[in-house]
């Protein structure tokens, strides 16, 4: 898989603050684009360290574990990443689109389908036949819930949870 990157970011974290800032921006952009391309919403530190993203076998260059943590912490700071367990820092959730952006995408689709004042199941939104071809098709449940919560604060939706039923009503 080839990702369009004008110049691959350096594998060693730079000491100079300006260079370091540019380098971290490049790495963050690369990681987010990589996961967007793969439609992946989680990162396993061990897996990603040995993946083609951090390890270029052709020139035998590899991003160090400390370097990777520096990049992931930067993503965490910008709100694109969240550690599942901040103590162990082994796995994290990646958001290459913010929950607000996902919420707006979902709501735009709801409006285009004239589905306001309609009840939807979470399965219907992310795995239904109607949502096939949309960007949020296949969206993981934890991120879907966050996206809908942003709509809830705008009073555009209300999450329904009772007994074994989970869904959302749009307004």
């Amino acid at each position: 898989m080839i990702l369009k990157q004008s110049k691959p970011p350096d594998n060693q974290i730079q000491p100079n603050s300006d260079t370091r800032k540019k380098q971290l921006e490049a790495w963050c952009s690369l990681i987010l684009n990589y996961h967007k391309h793969k439609k992946s919403y989680s990162i396993d530190v061990t897996e990603i360290l040995n993946s083609q993203l951090c390890h270029n076998k052709e020139i035998d260059r590899k991003l160090s574990l400390d370097g990777l943590y520096t990049v992931l912490d930067e993503l965490c700071r910008t709100g694109h990443l969240e550690w599942k367990d901040p103590k162990t820092k082994k796995q994290c959730l990646v958001m290459w689109r913010s929950p607000e952006e996902w919420g707006n995408l979902i709501y735009s689709w709801i409006l285009s389908k004239s589905m306001t004042n309609t009840v939807c199941t979470f399965y219907e939104l992310t795995n239904g036949e109607d949502s096939e071809g949309t960007e949020f098709h296949g969206l993981e449940k934890w991120l879907l819930l966050r996206a809908i919560k942003t709509l809830e604060t705008q009073q555009k939706a209300e999450i329904m949870m009772f007994d074994d039923s989970e869904g959302v009503k749009f307004f």
């Binding site: 939807c120 199941t121 239904g128 989970e166 869904g167």
Partner: peptide, 19 residues
């Protein structure tokens, strides 16, 4: 105040069964 009605709850349960 919740804008979800009893009918909405019934619809949701039916849709979950459909899923």
């Amino acid at each position: 105040e919740s804008r979800v009605t009893e009918q909405d709850k019934a619809v949701l349960q039916l849709k979950q069964q459909r899923d």
